[in-house]
Design a protein around this nucleic acid. Structure first.
Length: 422
DNA sequence: TCTGGGGTCCTAGGACCC
DNA sequence: TCTGGGGTCCTAGGACCC
């Protein structure tokens, strides 16, 4: 077997597939799932794709189409998707522990060193078992580099004859797809770069492969060179270091324009607290916090403001993080601006063993670990808002719209699916 | 009327130093 | 009075990913 072997396992239409597991009536019908605030389309069933509904299209632009074809529309239910994702990833670990979870619906498996006679068959085996164990359909690309594995998974998805598994080790028509697919199909080449390539008569992956390195380096930087090497079978995107997360962000758009300070402070305090929960969950500490408030990007007088502050010493204490977030907000809030979005970012993250604690801890910090542990426990066991800080407020004017959400089938006793026998 | 959220990485440019 | 060039560090912004 070759030096390196990566399998990219990609869940098909993931959010829609999650919904279908618990609601079989959605099968073989056009279904879409919307982003927060019911703003954009973030997942589409094949039937919805066939109707011409694009990815990330604002919902209001397709509402006519949706009505005409009775497209079933759902708000996103991240609690459900996160839990289903965990199940899929745990199932994949049955095949190899060398798994890199790349996103909520994708993982790279490092198959090096495993005794596998037939990679294509192995892929089919994974695909069938994931479907059986979790109900989620997946596509798989197998190749010597991550970029090629991604490309292979696209081939697997688009061409039914491969039965959703494409292995460059077992097929000999990769060159055909290099000739016929545009560079935009390649991982790392986005809209802007694809346009630029097109303007320079680079219309296919093969054309890109034939492009001089000098040109690539000048126009695409080091990333372009890396992509070319990867497509040549030379692996240069290594596995991520798991403890290397650089930032934690929590932000949301408001359902309506918001002008008043109090409501925005509530939103910022909530985001800051959620961000601190994430920090504690990952056992990390942050040194900096920054707060951003902005109008709609599409507003005539689009406005955005940032404020960054040092937290003193690295911390994951919710109270301190919320206090600092509110202090940041005071510096940038302006009266009379129609704010549409607020967010909090924690940066310079580190694990406990790298944290420098203050020489003389004050009273408030001494007990913070214990207090936070209790708060987290209660919020996990009862409900996420069981314990809140005063600044987080009680209103929900800043909350987003989610008019069409399914239930938390797998994570809430109240909302568990009911099976009836007759 | 209605346009997502959470991340990473790279680059250009300014400030500052010698 | 003349005001160079190299280095570093930081930040903002852009591009990309899902």
């Amino acid at each position: 077997m070759a030096d390196k072997v990566y399998a990219l396992v990609d869940c098909n239409n993931f959010y829609v597939s999650c919904e279908r597991v618990f609601n079989p009536c959605l099968e073989s019908k056009p279904v879409i799932v919307l982003s927060n605030n019911d703003g954009c389309v973030v997942s589409r069933s094949q039937e919805a794709k066939d109707l011409g509904i694009g990815m990330a299209v604002p919902f209001f632009k397709i509402s006519g189409l949706v009505k005409k074809h009775s497209v079933i529309t759902l708000s996103s239910n991240y609690t459900l998707y996160a839990d289903m994702s965990k199940r899929v990833m745990n199932s994949l670990m049955e095949f190899t522990p060398n798994i890199e979870i790349y996103s909520i619906d994708e993982s790279f498996l490092d198959l090096r060193g495993l005794k596998i006679d037939n990679l294509k068959q192995y892929g089919m085996d994974i695909k069938n078992k994931i479907r059986k164990w979790t109900g989620i359909p997946v596509s798989i690309g197998i190749a010597p580099t991550k970029t090629l594995a991604k490309f292979s998974s696209h081939i697997a998805k688009k061409n039914p004859e491969y039965q959703r598994v494409y292995s460059t080790y077992d097929e000999d028509d990769l060159g055909y797809y290099f000739d016929s697919y545009p560079p935009a199909e390649i991982w790392g080449i986005g809209r802007k770069m694809a346009k630029r390539l097109e303007r320079n008569d680079i219309g296919s992956v093969s054309d890109f492969m034939d492009t001089e390195e000098k040109w690539i380096s000048k126009n695409m930087g080091i990333n372009g060179l890396r992509i070319k090497a990867e497509l040549n079978g030379e692996s240069c995107i290594e596995s991520e270091d798991f403890c290397s997360q650089k930032s934690i962000i929590r932000s949301r758009s408001f359902a309506d324009k918001i002008f008043d300070y109090e409501t925005i402070e509530n939103a910022i305090a909530n985001h800051a607290f959620r961000a601190s929960e994430k920090l504690r969950e990952k056992k990390l500490y942050a040194r900096f916090i920054s707060v951003n408030i902005r109008t709609s990007r599409f507003d005539d007088q689009a406005h955005s403001a940032n404020y960054k502050m040092e937290l003193g010493y690295a911390t994951n204490d919710g109270v301190r993080i919320v206090e600092n977030a509110c202090a940041c907000l005071k510096n940038i809030y302006r009266k009379g601006i129609p704010y549409r979005k607020a967010g909090v970012m924690l940066t310079d993250l580190m694990p406990l063993n790298r944290v420098q604690l203050p020489i003389e801890p004050d009273k408030n910090t001494v007990n913070s670990e214990k207090i936070m542990a209790v708060v987290d426990h209660l919020n996990r066991e009862i409900k996420p808002t069981a314990i809140k800080l005063g600044a987080m407020g009680t209103g929900d004017r800043w909350h987003e719209k989610r008019g069409m959400m399914s239930k938390k089938f797998t994570t809430s006793w109240e909302e568990m699916p009911i099976v009836k026998f007759r």
